[in-house]
Write a protein that binds this DNA or RNA. Structure first.
Length: 204
DNA sequence: ATCAAGATTACCT
DNA sequence: GGTAATCTTGATA
């Protein structure tokens, strides 16, 4: 029996809803990337929301540019950006067309394709049990483990390269909310959501 | 054309 | 606790 049913992809209507609602509901969903015929899978455990209308930290705050173009599309596309000369970060675009909103994926609990992720992150050197969380507990680390980069910019999440699988929503009492990490503007917005006590949530 | 900042990470003391 | 690495992007001229 298949533990994970690959036919229950989240549909467009999931993503085109309100930013903060989608952000909370992304927790617990399964992120899948088809990687050289192999499926890399993990469970989303930490996210942050960004909204260009009122949020100075959002890449869309100052209007349309070549980089942020996909964030103004309707929900259900992948926004990938490069930062600090070294790292890619991936985001889920949300809302209706014209709204510059997206959700940064900051923490994933790996489920399938562990050996490929370990190869991508640590050149195959197996981390100790105690350090396993270091595989995917941060936005740059996730992109390295899942081998996500520039070429994945704008991918349609209702397609079959990168997509999310339906899962029951996480119970409210297990969801923690906080200020976002690593930004210098709009620092007080409580738009970071994560699953309580999960070891794959990033550190400050 | 030039330049400063950045939704980070790894490594140092 | 602190900070260097590294390069793309967006803003300013």
């Amino acid at each position: 029996m298949e533990l994970i049913n690959s036919d229950n992809k989240l549909k467009r209507e999931f993503y085109t809803r309100d930013l903060l609602l989608v952000a909370r509901e992304l927790l617990g969903k399964i992120f899948v990337k088809e990687h050289d015929g192999e499926k890399l899978r993990g469970r989303i455990v930490e996210v942050e929301a960004y909204d260009g209308d009122i949020d100075e930290a959002a890449h869309t705050f100052r209007g349309l540019t070549k980089r942020n173009e996909i964030m103004f599309n309707e929900g259900g596309y992948l926004y990938v950006y490069f930062t600090y000369g070294a790292h890619y970060c991936c985001n889920v675009v949300t809302g209706i067309k014209g709204k510059g909103t997206a959700i940064l994926i900051r923490g994933i609990e790996p489920l399938d394709g562990l050996s490929t992720m370990i190869k991508n992150r640590f050149d195959g050197r197996l981390p100790g049990e105690k350090d396993m969380h270091n595989l995917t507990n941060g936005p740059g680390k996730i992109c390295q483990a899942f081998s996500i980069s520039r070429e994945h910019y704008g991918i349609d999440l209702t397609g079959n390269k990168i997509y999310l699988l339906e899962q029951p929503n996480i119970k409210t009492e297990l969801i923690k909310v906080s200020k976002r990490i690593g930004i210098k503007k709009s620092v007080d917005l409580p738009w970071r959501f994560y699953i309580k006590d999960n070891p794959y949530v990033s550190k400050r």
